[in-house]
Design a protein around this nucleic acid. Structure first.
Length: 310
DNA sequence: AAGACGAAAGTGGTTGA
DNA sequence: TCAACAACTTTCGTCTT
């Protein structure tokens, strides 16, 4: 008998086994549940910017392009420093020290705010903790570079969440993030492109497969339907009918078809609502896939069977 | 009345000259 | 930088059960 597993992050009982990586994954939020799995992320959590600074044992790599080689220093921390300077230069030095202090305080405030914002969005979206850590780490990298000035913190954090989720293979859409982040999809998109350039991240397109787990769980569809949908997408890719299409639309349509084939039908509307795509898009993808794979008759037959039962 | 279908017009983003 | 373009959405009327 299989042990009942509950997600530690969101409490969902919807746990799937991923044989490829030999780990259990929550279908709702994507959290990895096995302790035996080696975690290559940081083992600490930053609750404040102070902790973030203290606990981070490494900074970002030193680059010549940085104004201060990445090793920021505050000028004149204590009074003792002041007396090392020639008397006639003291006033000037004092002013410099004040400026330096203010700059540090500003950085500090921003970091604290950014981290609470991150915490808020993350818990709203039920994201696993490793995502939060990754975002915090990326954000501090950006701060070091001094490249977040004059940009909305919400947008930057949102974009980092988008990036981290994508890296983990549990992507969220701009829309999903925007709905809880207090910024527009547009802003997040702009921040995303900017950050990708800053951090030299390669931008890979999202795979429809990555959405299948979450959508299937949202729709209360069984394991069978999930696998069937993945299969449909794989076949569709071979035929070259899904490239260039929106990944959420493809995932939604694949689940629609799979739900019919596995006798667990869902209406287009139901799927459209949960997957945040329109019925029209589902229909378009549905048509393309069914025709592309040459399974029109099989699907039509199944649909009739289902109607009879009803 | 509910669900599926698809035409037409509009939106936001990418691409290529 | 701008226009063409594909994907997707919104809206709405039609058909079927």
């Amino acid at each position: 008998m299989e042990k009942k597993r509950v997600c530690k992050v969101c409490g969902s009982e919807n746990i799937i086994y991923n044989p490829e990586k030999a780990e259990y994954v929550c279908a709702d939020c994507g959290a990895v549940l096995e302790e035996s799995v080696v975690d290559i992320g940081q083992e600490w959590r930053a609750f404040s910017s102070e902790q973030l600074e203290k606990r981070a044992r490494t900074g970002s790599p030193i680059k010549i392009t940085k104004h201060d080689k990445g090793l920021g220093t505050q000028i004149g921390k204590g009074l003792t420093e002041l007396y090392k300077v020639k008397p006639e230069k003291r006033i000037q030095y004092y002013r410099l020290a004040q400026w330096s202090k203010r700059l540090m305080q500003a950085k500090e405030r921003i970091l604290t705010y950014a981290l609470t914002e991150l915490e808020r969005i993350s818990s709203n979206l039920k994201l696993p903790k490793n995502i939060e850590e990754r975002v915090a780490s990326l954000y501090s990298q950006l701060i070091e570079k001094g490249s977040v000035r004059g940009r909305s913190i919400e947008a930057i954090i949102s974009a980092l969440i988008y990036i981290a989720c994508k890296e983990e293979g549990i992507p969220r859409t701009f829309d999903e993030i925007a709905s809880v982040a207090g910024t527009s999809k547009r802003e997040i998109g702009r921040a995303y492109r900017f950050i990708a350039r800053q951090l030299n991240l390669r931008i890979l397109p999202i795979k429809p497969e990555d959405f299948v787990n979450r959508f299937a769980s949202l729709l209360n569809l069984s394991e069978k339907v999930r696998e069937r949908a993945l299969n449909i997408i794989a076949q569709g890719r071979k035929k070259g009918i899904i490239s260039g299409k929106g990944p959420t639309g493809v995932a939604a349509a694949a689940l629609y078809i799979a739900s019919i084939l596995e006798n667990e039908p869902r209406t287009q509307k139901e799927i459209a609502d949960k997957c945040k795509v329109t019925e029209v898009t589902i229909r378009n993808r549905y048509k393309e896939i069914v025709e592309g794979l040459g399974i029109e008759e099989i699907v039509a037959k199944k649909e009739k069977e289902i109607e009879k039962k009803a």
